[in-house]
Amino acid sequence: MARYAQTERQSLADLFLAVGPDAPTLNEGWTTRDLAAHLVVRERRPDALPGVRLPALRGYSERVTRAVATQPYPRLIDQVRRPPWWSPLSNPVTDALANTLEFFVHHEDVRRARPDWQPREIPAGEQAALWKPASLIARLRLRRFPATLLIQATGFGERTTGAGGEPVRLVGAPGELVMFLTGRQRAARVQLDGSPALIERLRTAKLGV
């Protein structure tokens, strides 16, 4: 079985080292050091994970992440590259499910923050693996969008979501749809068909975590 999560992880670690700790990312306010620290905390500090989603615990999570980020950058990236075997998110049983999308998106967060970035070739198998969570994200995050949304992953499938009404069509490769549906709309290369007002509303909707 192809290990796309591992491929994306190693490619991201290589890119982290190539661009250095102060390079920009698509994550607002985060440098590459900040993003790397987030990934390390995600896998190695389960006590800080609830703060990612729960505002009441966010302060603790942010303090832990800042502390992790202070270590030497090469050591930080080595921890990204080599996750602990005991992590509930990166052990052999859960790695593909928990990390394929995560590391693809964050790899692109670094790639697409660079002014000279170009699309890369994504294997068909990885595109198929990305379409599964993308279709679920579309249903969950856009179910109340005031339109009938047809989301088409070219060659992989389609999903209809939204609250109903005027039709809007979102078309792209699964990887591009993933970027769009996780709040990176402006960096995603997709096609949108529908009324200009609804298209602009979709492009500026808050779709991230």
Rank of each mutant, 00 (worst) to 15 (best):
Q79P: 02
A5M: 07
L39Y: 07
R58D: 12
L57D: 10
I122H: 04
D95C: 03
F103D: 03
V93L: 14
A98D: 01
T32C: 10
P72M: 10
L57M: 15
L101Y: 06
V52Y: 11
P115Y: 09
Y73C: 12
N27S: 15
Q71E: 15
A98L: 14
G29A: 03
E62R: 13
Q79F: 04
T7H: 12
E62F: 09
G20I: 12
T65L: 14
P119Y: 08
S11G: 10
D78A: 14
H107N: 13
P84G: 07
R9H: 12
Q71C: 07
R44P: 02
L12K: 05
P72N: 12
D34I: 00
Y4D: 06
E121H: 14
V80Q: 01
A69D: 08
D14V: 11
S61P: 01
L35S: 07
T25Q: 03
V80P: 00
M1D: 12
R58N: 13
L15W: 01
E43A: 13
L76M: 09
R114A: 12
L76H: 00
H106T: 10
R53H: 13
R111W: 04
P119Q: 01
R81W: 05
V64C: 12
W86C: 08
R58M: 14
E121C: 07
P50Q: 12
R75K: 06
T32I: 14
F103P: 01
A37G: 09
T31N: 09
S87Q: 12
L49N: 11
A113S: 07
P119L: 05
L49W: 14
N91L: 09
P74Q: 02
D47F: 06
W117S: 11
I122P: 00
L97K: 14
L26T: 07
R9E: 05
H107Y: 11
A36P: 09
T100S: 08
R42C: 05
Q10T: 11
L101R: 12
R75G: 04
P55A: 13
R120E: 14
L49V: 15
H107P: 06
V64D: 03
